[in-house]
Amino acid sequence: MYLVASALAVERSVSPETRRDLYRMRHDVWVSLYREDEAVVEDTLALLDEALARLPHEGGEAAARVREMRNFYAFLFRDLSELVTPYEKWREEQSASPEVRPLGRGEATRSMPEK
């Protein structure tokens, strides 16, 4: 219910015929959520950089924890950012193709792009 309550991924509307609540996924929700998070992470990285600049060079354990957090987010979001554009291109190609191949375990998906 969190995604419904916060209107991040799911939106609620009312059916005019039945007056029942209808729920649907927002269009392009995952990339949109990522883009929102990306801005927050950029702000967090700037804050962590500022904190590291203010700490003594030999800041001890506190500086090491801040540096580790900063490096983790920098690494993670660097790689995710590089995946979003190819994903958007792949998604467009998939929406144009009706071919679906089974993955196993009852799931199905369209084929992933070759690198």
Rank of each mutant, 00 (worst) to 15 (best):
Y2R: 10
V4P: 02
A5K: 15
A5F: 06
S6N: 08
A7V: 08
L8A: 13
V10R: 01
E11V: 10
S13V: 01
V14M: 07
S15A: 10
P16R: 04
E17Q: 11
E17L: 13
T18I: 03
T18L: 02
R19H: 06
R20Q: 06
D21F: 07
D21M: 07
L22K: 07
L22Y: 01
Y23M: 08
M25F: 07
H27E: 14
H27V: 15
H27F: 04
D28V: 15
W30R: 09
W30F: 11
V31Q: 15
V31R: 03
S32G: 12
L33W: 01
Y34P: 11
E36Q: 11
E36H: 09
E36I: 13
E38V: 10
A39L: 05
A39E: 14
V41C: 05
T44W: 04
L45T: 13
L47V: 05
L48W: 04
A53L: 07
R54I: 11
L55H: 01
P56N: 03
E58G: 14
E58H: 09
E58F: 03
G59Y: 02
G60Y: 00
G60D: 09
G60E: 02
E61K: 04
A63S: 10
A64L: 07
A64Y: 04
R65A: 13
V66P: 01
R67S: 11
E68P: 15
E68A: 08
M69P: 04
R70K: 06
F72G: 10
Y73W: 07
A74P: 00
A74R: 06
F77G: 00
F77P: 02
R78L: 09
R78K: 05
R78H: 13
L80I: 14
S81L: 14
S81M: 07
E82W: 08
E82P: 01
L83T: 08
L83I: 14
V84C: 05
V84D: 03
V84Y: 01
Y87N: 04
Y87D: 15
Y87M: 08
E88I: 09
E88C: 03
W90R: 13
E92Y: 01
E92A: 15
Q94S: 09
S95Q: 13
A96R: 07
A96W: 00
S97A: 12
S97G: 03
P98F: 01
P98C: 12
E99W: 00
E99T: 12
V100H: 01
R101G: 10
L103S: 06
G104Q: 03
R105V: 06
R105W: 00
G106A: 02
A108R: 02
A108D: 01
T109R: 02
T109L: 11
T109C: 06
T109D: 11
S111N: 06
P113C: 06
E114H: 08
E114F: 04
K115R: 13
